[in-house]
Each structure stands twice: as structure tokens, then as C-alpha cells.
Amino acid sequence: MPVTLLNPDGIMKPDVYRQVAIATGTRQVHIAGQVAYDAEGQLVARGDLAGQVAQAYRNVAIALAAAGATFDDVVRLTFYVVDWKRESMPDFLAGIEQVARELRISPAPASLIGVSVLYEPGVLVEIEATAVVG
């Protein structure tokens, strides 16, 4: 396996992601920001952060598969969330937990960045991914 994920002693150990990814592969895969559109270009789960997080994650999985990668190869996720506030965390985590069960994925190192707006009204979250494949 080209990626080892860990939470080292001495820093916070979150449940939904790991603090460190060690990659030993040779091919990098960079997934552009994925949002909650379905294959027909329709926005899924309008106004529902959990639903949009889940759909954006599904889209990342599709993009990874097209590149011959899986979430086991992911070394970094970046989430951009519109109007982020700490009170949004339960909905955000619900979306992650839903798709983690559905896709059977492990949590990769991640950053969450609050933004005032994404490129289109109604889009609440965008996810970028970087993977390293052997």
C-alpha cells in the first residue's frame, strides 16, 4: 500500500481524518474541486450540507477511480465550505460519515476552509483531493 495514515502522539487525534500521510508511490493524482452535482449536472441536496458533502465525496471517488486510484491512495483532502461556522460541524460530519460507510473509506489528512461563496449559488461545499499511487 503506497499510503500510510497516522495520528502521531502529542497532537490531537481526530476521528474523521488523520494528521499525517506518508506516501511511497510514484504517480500523483490531483482531483479538481468536486461539488454536489450528479452526472447530469444537477445540484444534489440543495440547502443540505450533509447531503452535499456526501455527493461531493462520491464525485471524488468517481474521479479517483478514473485515474486508477481509490481513497486508500489519498494523501490530502481540502474542503471549502460556504459560510462555515462551528455549529455546522454535525451536518458536515454526518455527510462524511454517511459516505464513509457507503464507500468504506478511511479518513485522509484534511483541511477545512470557510469561504463566503463558491462559484455558483446553492453550492455549499467543494472537495479537492491529492492521491499518490504506486
Rank of each mutant, 00 (worst) to 15 (best):
E97V: 08
S88F: 13
S88K: 14
L103P: 09
P90F: 03
W84K: 06
A110F: 06
D91I: 01
S88W: 08
A94I: 07
A100P: 05
G95C: 06
E102W: 03
A110C: 02
K85N: 13
K85P: 01
W84T: 07
A110S: 08
A110T: 03
I96K: 04
A100M: 08
A110P: 00
V99Y: 04
Q98D: 12
R86H: 11
E87I: 06
S111I: 01
S111W: 00
E102N: 05
E97C: 02
S106D: 08
R104N: 10
Q98M: 05
E102G: 06
M89Q: 11
R86C: 03
K85S: 14
V82A: 10
I105W: 13
Q98L: 12
W84G: 09
I105S: 15
I105H: 08
P107N: 01
R101W: 10
P90Y: 05
A108Y: 03
R101I: 07
V82K: 10
R104A: 10
I105N: 10
L93Q: 10
G95I: 07
P90D: 14
S111A: 05
V99P: 00
R104Y: 07
G95Q: 11
L103C: 09
S111V: 06
V99K: 01
P107R: 01
L93D: 05
F92K: 04
I96C: 04
V82T: 13
G95T: 10
A108E: 02
A94C: 02
Q98T: 14
D83F: 04
V99S: 09
S111H: 02
S111Q: 12
D91R: 15
A94T: 08
L93M: 08
I96G: 03
P107C: 00
V82R: 13
D83C: 05
M89H: 08
R104M: 05
S106M: 03
S88C: 12
S111Y: 02
P109Y: 07
P90S: 11
E87Y: 03
D91A: 15
L93G: 02
I105P: 02
Q98I: 00
D91F: 09
D91Y: 10
V82D: 06
S106Q: 13
G95V: 08
E102K: 05
